[in-house]
Design a protein around this nucleic acid. Structure first.
Length: 879
RNA sequence: GGGCGAAUAGCUCAGUUGGCUAGAGCACCUGCCUUACAAGCAGGGGGUCACAGGUUCAAGUCCUGUUUCGCCCACCA
């Protein structure tokens, strides 16, 4: 069967993925005789489709897992999806809105049915996308954060933390999203600078003896003011502390308090205190036992406490209030002011800090071990600078608000007795009050923050709370691969939950990758419409191409631009590999390897060279992978395959493969070609799994699939520095002849003779392998002599230890050549000068490592030889 | 306000224990349909490695400062 000239990924990718699944190559049972290597997938949200960032994240994970699997580890990649509470609920609500309904129209039960339908639809779409990408997940172990097992883990953790006193319920100030109608944790709020205003408002003293001017960016909250604070050392206000003010428009008497939180240099130095709507004021309120007056309701509208403003939207109220204040003469000034405003990370609505009864996780006791673990290096961040980011957050973390006023999620396992008021926190759903035995109990309507269940992912996916073999063998997992944007949300929380419940970190390493950006360096986003859909890329170019374009140029922690030229580059690479394989297959039709034939076959210099280069490439790929430099590993493969294997080795193997040098020589070339190509496909497999399998399968091979082939471990015997050096000399001479031909515009098809005058030590090399020059530089004949007189009318290529003459009658331009040689000579002399200076420097010779000094000495000799050669040639020309 | 990152060829970026004669891809120029590949082959041009100091025998690489971008965190009303 003739293979197509152009590689068609579609013909192969589906076929092999099916084959891999059928063969069960991705499934791993616990095997205690092997070292475990486990990755748990960052579970994608079931909100919709995977984006390019997911494709990157999962390509990186797949490369690591395939590599470790080939290295013989007990490798398992556990896949799954996240229920993504608030995000998914918003999506389904949007879908309902199109039908003109809200979730309340359906009721909780019906609404949840709708969300489960959604989950089924998009969950399976995501799995398909991962499979299209080639992800070698163990699908038998697929999990969902709300499946039975994960839910049991959540329940166990909640109850256990409650029993330890680490979960509590209380009225505190939290971030409230008026659109989502739920509490949010601190990190779910995004702070953005906005152009706002700073209003100065006068508050008259109750006794009519004067006034105090306060500054605020949120005048509507003044309706809930219960004090005005000044700095205790502020001389301006010292006498006022303890006295009372009349709150304008409201008429309430409020005290003037002293608190060192106040910055005397900002505004007027007097701060209105609204404990119910500002976190700082809340804290001040606690310190001074101030009452809390909630004036903004859960829907963002003013509450009955707001008096005549009740019912107004918070912004309408602001407008109205300012106008009223102005009318009444309370407004002192209005200034432009830039300040940070918090908004809901899911819907972008400006959040309202408000006092509300919520459930919290007490962070201090959990954070301490999580800090220690990273400081001790039990969890290593790659790159390491992200450890600082992590520590900075964990060291300053506040208690975690975990209750959400949503329907989609893990229902809080707390029941309230309607008769005696008992709070029941239970692992199993209770039917009656534990205190008064009343059956009249009601479950807390709220659900848990999505990240509560994700925090348990590394052990809930391994079967916990059951003590499974998997948990014992695979926990702690080996590496977590993710973006820096969820270090706080997820990585940190997994670490403290893992430490609390497994007494061990959840993973040894965290490999952080950057963000994908568009060609202009902008973040890819839906609103900009500049995102690239991974499915479309796979559709158009194939998964291998997508993967390779994502991985090449990627470095830990740094963002990467992504654009079509990059995809095309990877596509071209795949095609190059494909054609090299086609060529190999055409010449290996009658070939079957018989054990290790390297010892018995007559290897040529080119064979020894490519084996030496292959060995180095394999070692480097492995070394880069060990260091999580996947981009560098990909580059090594690209360069080796394209610039060495294809450009040089295949070209030099041709005469032998075509049988022009006898059967034995042909066999040597075939064997080397087969060997290097097969091993190279194995090295490439983690990066481009499909094409490597397709080619590997067509070559003679052992085993059912490249997926379970052994990772190449090139023998020491392939190392051959001499062959590499010699081959470099031949490549240089070929390139110089091609250069001259090109400059002199000798038609590519035209063969020309050449004469090489070589020093003694190069005689053998050119004698044995001058044929390579003849072949690759299109020579008609090659004459080899010792240095001597120059032939008539020949263009010379002057090199170290040899000179190549090309008798190109009629094309030689004497002056041009002299000029060129003089330039070369000047350059060589300058370099020699530098080398001589170095070597004359006693400090250098003494302090630099021996191999560096040796190299300089060698270089000096080479330059001297080159200069002598150039001078000789110039003399000839000038005569 | 604090912290972090980046600045290298026209563009995008490599350059990981300091030893480079600074690389690649794309773009550009020249010539080629050479029986694996025109998604290709061969050749070529193009860089005072942001700036200023310092350490060192040696600095794109380490230190200090400056400039310009970018990101993260933060309760200054």
């Amino acid at each position: 069967m003739a293979l197509a000239k152009k590689y068609d990924p579609h013909a192969t990718e589906k076929k092999w993925y099916r084959y891999w699944l059928d063969g069960g190559f991705f499934h791993a049972e616990v095997d205690k005789t092997k070292e475990p290597f486990c990755i748990v997938i960052p579970p994608p949200n079931v909100t919709g489709q995977l984006h390019l960032g997911h494709a990157l994240d999962n390509t990186l994970q797949d490369i690591l897992i395939r590599w470790q699997r080939m290295k013989g580890k007990n490798a398992v990649w556990i896949p799954g999806t996240d229920h993504a509470g608030i995000a998914t609920q918003i999506k389904v609500e949007e879908e309902l809105a199109k039908e003109g309904k809200t979730r309340h129209d359906l009721g909780r039960e019906k609404f949840l049915e709708r969300v489960w339908e959604w989950k089924e639809r998009y969950g399976s779409r995501i799995i398909e996308q991962l499979q299209d990408l080639g992800a070698s997940c163990d699908w038998e172990r697929e999990r969902f954060t709300m499946d039975e097992g994960c839910s049991r883990a959540v329940r166990e953790v909640f109850v256990s933390l409650y029993e330890k006193g680490l979960i509590y319920q209380g009225n505190y100030i939290i971030n409230w999203c008026p659109r989502c109608q739920t509490a949010l944790s601190d990190i779910e709020v995004e702070h953005k600078d906005q152009e706002g205003k700073l209003w100065e408002i006068r508050y008259p003293l109750a006794d009519g003896s004067g006034e105090l001017v306060v500054a605020t960016t949120r005048p509507e909250t003044m309706l809930g003011d219960t004090a005005v604070a000044v700095h205790p050392d502020d001389e301006r206000y010292k006498d006022l502390v303890g006295r009372e003010l009349i709150l304008p428009m409201v008429g309430r008497r409020i005290p003037i308090i002293a608190d060192s939180y106040v910055d005397p240099s900002f505004g007027t130095g007097a701060v209105k205190v609204t404990p119910a709507h500002d976190p700082n004021d809340f804290a001040m309120g606690q310190r001074h036992s101030l009452p809390q007056v909630t004036v903004i309701g859960p829907d963002g509208k003013m509450s009955p406490e707001a008096g005549k403003y009740a019912g107004l939207d918070r912004y309408q109220c602001r407008k109205q209030l300012i106008s009223d204040l102005e009318k009444e003469g309370y407004l002192v000034s209005t200034k432009a002011h830039q300040h940070a405003v918090g908004s809901c990370s899911r819907c972008d609505t400006t959040v309202e800090p408000t006092v509300s009864k919520q459930w919290f996780v007490k962070m201090k006791p959990l954070a301490e071990p999580a800090i220690e673990a990273v400081k001790k290096g039990l969890v290593e961040f790659i790159p390491s600078r992200f450890a600082k980011l992590y520590l900075n957050w964990v060291e300053n973390v506040r208690d975690w608000c975990i209750s959400r006023q949503l329907w989609w999620g893990h229902r809080i396992p707390v029941w309230y007795c309607q008769d005696c008021g008992e709070v029941i926190v239970a692992r199993e759903d209770p039917t009656a009050c534990t205190k008064c035995s009343s059956g009249n109990i009601e479950q807390d309507p709220d659900v848990l923050d999505t990240w509560f269940s994700s925090a348990l992912w590394p052990f809930s996916t391994l079967g916990w709370p059951d003590q499974t073999q998997e948990l014992e063998h695979f926990y702690p997992t080996s590496v977590l691969v993710t973006g820096f944007d969820i270090i706080y949300f997820w990585v940190a929380r997994m670490i403290f939950m893992g430490l609390e419940f497994q007494k061990e970190v959840p993973f040894h390493k965290v490999y952080i990758h950057g963000l994908l950006r568009d060609a202009q360096g902008r973040k890819m986003s839906k609103s900009l419409g500049n995102g690239i859909d991974p499915s479309e890329v796979i559709e158009g170019y194939g998964a291998d191409t997508l993967r390779f374009s994502l991985v090449s140029g990627t470095a830990p922690g740094s963002d990467m631009r992504f654009y079509t030229e990059k995809i095309e580059g990877a596509r071209n690479f795949a095609n190059k590999i494909w054609n090299a394989a086609r060529f190999a297959l055409m010449n290996l039709e009658d070939f079957q390897p018989q054990g290790d034939e390297f010892a018995s076959l007559p290897l040529e210099l080119a064979d020894k060279w490519i084996l030496a280069r292959y060995r180095k490439a394999a070692l480097e790929v492995d070394r880069w992978l060990e260091r999580f430099e996947l981009g560098e590993a990909a580059r090594v493969l690209y360069d080796f395959i394209w610039s060495e294997f294809c450009d040089w080795y295949l070209e030099l193997a041709k005469p032998r493969l075509y049988g022009r040098k006898g059967e034995e020589a042909r066999r040597a070339a075939q064997y080397t070609l087969w060997y290097v190509l097969s091993r190279t496909m194995e090295l490439l497999h983690p990066f481009m799994p499909f094409i490597s399998e397709e080619i590997w399968q067509q070559l003679p091979h052992d085993g059912p699939s490249i997926v379970v082939a052994s990772w190449p471990a090139p023998p020491e015997s392939f190392a051959d520095e001499e062959a590499e050096e010699q081959f470099t000399i031949l490549m240089d001479s070929i390139r110089s002849i091609r250069n001259v031909r090109s400059e002199k515009q000798v038609p590519p098809g035209k063969k020309v003779p050449a004469i090489i005058q070589a020093e003694q030590q190069l005689q053998d090399l050119f004698g044995d392998w001058g044929q390579y020059i003849t072949e690759l530089a299109s020579l008609s004949e090659l004459e080899l002599t010792v240095p001597g007189a120059a032939p008539e009318k020949a263009e010379a290529i002057v090199a170290t230890g040899y000179t190549i003459y090309l008798p190109l009658a009629g094309l030689v331009d004497l002056e041009q050549e002299i000029a060129k040689l003089e330039k070369e000579l000047a350059g060589a002399r300058e370099q020699l000068g530098r080398v001589e200076n170095k070597l004359a420097n006693a400090d250098f010779v003494q302090k630099a490592p021996a191999h560096v000094v040796e190299r300089e000495q060698k270089r000096k000799q080479e330059l001297e030889a080159l200069i002598a050669n150039l001078e000789k040639r110039l003399h000839e020309l000038e005569d």
